[in-house]
């Protein structure tokens, strides 16, 4: 008796749910833009979050309808792309360089759907695909310049998350900037082999401060929380990354190497609304385009004369007079 009842109950529940599911279809007329985050999730205090902020601004100012899907594993990218495709979006973003391969494939499979990828480079982008790249080395160079000018110990540090090309752009851009400002300055560099282990970041930063560095720059995600914490405790300086991280330690984070993913997202969305979607291209954002830079809070700690110099350096980079290295080989060449 009971079993029959249970089964009946479950069946009814399932049917109700299915029916409820069918009554949801609605037609939207607004332009819809959506994004797939990488495994960091939408609130990673880093580029995913910045991307979402860009879309939120687009929602406010351009009146587009926005949404996102978070990925938990690399294998999620493709199904998530499909989810957004089925939801009928006008433009679908993939956030992060890991998304490039997936984007290339889905763009080919769905020629009528527009796509764009942050930190993605496409060799032969189809007309419905845009790759967006940032010159992370340029803001890293600028914060390196600041560090080189402000260090009293003539020793600064760099903590990297994992040892691969995206982080190398920060690493060698920073080193070049430091050397440009202060050729005698020594640079300690260490990788944490993690983007999550804050305790390890703190231990590495502590060690750098002990070894005489007085400013440490990090490009290490969650590991960086530990780096900034170490600066806070020992009253030393740290430099943040991706967004303005001054709020994590207002007295210690002197500047941040910012990557304005939000600006890039907003600009392209605006282009889409205007009907000027630059399909089939790779767009590179650097200082010139105002999509990277140093944090607006830099003036709290950095003296005005150094900031003025930074502006000059910035002009030189924009004019192409100064080309910032983005890898070890470039850096070696650059040093000569």
């Amino acid at each position: 008796m009971l079993r029959k009842r249970t089964i009946l109950f479950i069946s009814v529940l399932v049917i109700v749910l299915v029916i409820a599911g069918c009554g949801q279809a609605k037609k939207e007329t607004k332009i819809k833009v959506a994004m797939v985050t990488d495994v960091g999730g939408v609130n990673d205090q880093s580029f995913n979050q910045s991307a979402w902020e860009g879309l939120q601004r687009a929602e406010k100012e351009l009146g587009v309808k926005i949404s996102y899907v978070e990925s938990n594993q690399d294998a999620d990218y493709k199904p998530n792309m499909e989810t957004l495709f089925d939801a009928g979006n006008d433009l679908i973003w993939g956030i992060g360089f890991k998304m490039a391969e997936t984007l290339g494939e889905v763009a080919k499979l769905n020629p009528e759907q527009k796509y764009a990828g942050i930190d993605c480079f496409f060799e032969n982008p189809t007309p419905n695909l845009v790759g967006i790249l940032f010159k992370e080395q340029e803001p890293s160079f600028l914060v390196g310049y600041i560090a080189g000018k402000m260090t009293k110990a003539k020793k600064v540090g760099f903590v990297g998350g994992m040892d691969f090309f995206v982080i190398h752009k920060f690493h060698y851009g920073f080193m070049a900037g430091v050397k440009y400002a202060n050729p005698e300055c020594k640079i300690l560099a260490q990788y944490a082999d993690s983007f999550t282990d804050a305790a390890k970041g703190k231990a590495i930063a502590n060690q750098m401060y002990k070894n005489g560095a007085d400013i440490v720059f990090h490009a290490a995600g969650g590991v960086g929380d530990g780096v900034i914490e170490a600066a806070k405790e020992q009253n030393k300086f740290a430099i943040g990354v991706d967004r303005d991280q001054n709020d994590l330690a207002p007295a210690n984070v002197i500047t941040s190497a910012m990557k304005r993913v939000d600006n890039a997202m907003f600009n392209l969305t605006e282009d889409l609304v205007k009907g000027e979607y630059p399909g089939g291209t790779n767009v590179v954002y650097g200082l010139k385009e105002g999509a990277v830079g140093i944090a607006p809070t830099s003036d709290k700690h950095v003296p005005q004369d150094i900031l003025d110099e930074v502006d000059k350096v910035k002009e030189m980079i924009i004019s192409g007079e100064l080309v910032v290295p983005s890898s070890l080989e470039d850096y070696k060449k650059w040093m000569k």
């Binding site: 205090q45 703190k202 914490e229 994590l248």
Partner: peptide, 8 residues
């Protein structure tokens, strides 16, 4: 060790 929580 740090002063905030994050999922990782």
């Amino acid at each position: 060790i740090v002063s905030n929580f994050r999922p990782t």
